[in-house]
Design a protein around this nucleic acid. Structure first.
Lengths: 317, 317
DNA sequence: TTGTAAGCGTTATCAG
DNA sequence: CTGATAACGCTTACAA
């Protein structure tokens, strides 16, 4: 594999000239510049990123710290990772995947953190020395990327209302984290705006729990009802409940999910859901983080994505 | 961050002595060794892996090349990745996730490849210059890690037989790849061994296709039937079909899947499936690859995991 | 057993 | 605008 010296020798210039052509081409005369370009092409030169990293006191490694139990959200993260990977590759960074138990010594240039809970801000996140971007909204002032959770829940609630249903239940996850509070607020405000009574039900993010809860409700209900769920997993559970009781979807029971990343397509009938552009969001996390690193840790602000309602057969024919 | 020189200065020895304590402790006298250890501890010394990489002409990066469209198998890969990550972290490697479109120039120490199809061996895999471990069985002589696909299908087929069913259909994926051929063979041989007629049906790996196919079959069948499927996704489709037609699981229809990594738990009733220890297999891929790198590319052979039958409510009460 | 010197491939700095 | 030199943190080869 050709090095800078090889390129220099072939172009009959010094290593520095080659280095400049790569990093500050405007500082080199057009003639030499062209000579160097030719030489690089001829030798198929690719910089040694390890050597660059050494001089720059960098590692070219960023870590993805997943603080959540991974099997709770599995399919979700693969997309996030795919997005992150695209951006990192382009900029010659690589990735380390770490969890709560393995984030001790931190040889990396920056971190993307996700799945954090209230306690983690003080005990983990505030102690990190490298630039950080959080994946997931937070109210502690950290840079983050997320979807507009409140709006997402607002548009689903309005959607089922528009189908002529006013008995609308909310199924959410029983954790007091910003993303969930926002989803609850989106539902609650929309209901109150229409003078309807919010009915909020929080539970573990499990399709079986949701099914169990929904069956109890459905057994003693006669009128048309809608379940707006804060995750596709919960949504699928409610679908199962309605099916077990032989109730018609969407005529008797309407169901919506949230995430739109995988499970929504497995459900039968396919789930109406709020799609989050996770891959895109992953790319943005990485982009913001790398920019932050380049800018010596300067805050990059927040990036909130517009949620997209994907209407399918659990709410319309 | 403390460097080798800092440690050396504090211990009043040369850099080399410190380097030796780290790499060849037996070459250093016990007294100096202890001094150095103390100094390292006091300064909280962690080697700079970038500098090590530079001298060793390495990158400390391995690539995971996923040749398959990722959303077809999504949940699966997150587990593989989790396993790989654990092992890489321990050995100070980091990861780049690449796909068919982005595996051009290859600054890495080795690759784990998965999702390959027949054509890929010649056009991609054989051209890689670095050590490679494949995730997925192959007959081209490359080192690989996989589960015993044939045996996995054999034990499921035997399991449904043991439930007293002899009308057993196989639903597989319509690709001629070794893992699928092995699963087919496992089913076929077991059927023939019992003098039963194999009924093999291949299709796209989609729950909706499987549902569509299964509904056709179930509509014109009266006796008890079992569907042994080559993926959980297909299995879930068949579950939906049986449910739509109001048929009793497992009394009239038995269903099994294959993978046991995520979807099996979402299904209702929960799917009997062949669990693959994917996380463990991911670890092994990484371990074999890193050993191979250390041994200058020497073949590490193959590693075949024993499949585990997880019996749940789609085959028994 | 320990230390010195050179080098890995790059860039920053300063001199010409 | 260009080049020589030193430095990044470590290891190998050789010398003491």
């Amino acid at each position: 594999m050709a090095t800078l010296s090889d390129v220099a020798r072939r172009a009959m210039v010094s290593k520095m000239t080659v280095s400049r052509v790569i990093n500050h081409p405007e500082q080199v005369s057009p003639e030499l510049r062209q000579l160097v370009y030719n030489s690089m092409k001829a030798l198929n030169y690719v910089p040694n990123y390890v050597a660059q990293a050494l001089v720059h006191h960098r590692t070219q490694v960023i870590k993805l710290l997943i603080l959540e139990e991974m099997d709770t959200t599995e399919p979700y993260y693969m997309n996030l990772l795919a997005g992150i990977a695209v951006e990192l590759d382009q900029r010659h960074y690589s990735l380390q995947l770490v969890t709560r138990s393995s984030h001790t010594i931190c040889r990396c240039d920056g971190l993307i953190v996700t799945g954090m809970r209230e306690d983690d801000y003080e005990s983990i996140i505030s102690r990190l020395e490298q630039p950080v971007i959080l994946f997931g909204e937070n109210m502690k002032g950290y840079d983050y990327v997320d979807v507009d959770n409140k709006k997402g829940m607002k548009i689903t609630t309005e959607h089922v209302m528009a189908q002529g249903c006013s008995n609308i239940l909310f199924y959410g996850i029983d954790i007091e984290e910003p993303f969930m509070l926002s989803r609850i607020a989106g539902y609650e405000e929309t209901m109150k705006g229409k003078k309807l009574l919010p009915q909020i039900n929080l539970m573990k993010n499990s399709s079986h729990i949701a099914q169990f809860e929904a069956e109890k409700v459905l057994k003693k209900i006669s009128e048309r009802v809608a379940f707006v769920c804060a995750s596709d997993r919960l949504g699928i559970g409610v679908v199962h409940a309605a099916q077990r009781l032989g109730m018609a979807i969407p005529d008797q029971v309407m169901i919506t999910g949230f995430d739109g990343v995988f499970l929504d397509r497995i459900a039968q009938p396919k789930l109406t859901t709020v799609r989050q552009p996770i891959v895109e969001m992953g790319k943005t996390c990485a982009k913001l983080l790398l920019d932050k690193i380049d800018q010596d840790g300067r805050s990059q602000g927040i990036c909130v994505y517009k949620p997209e309602l994907v209407i399918r057969n659990t709410t319309v024919h």
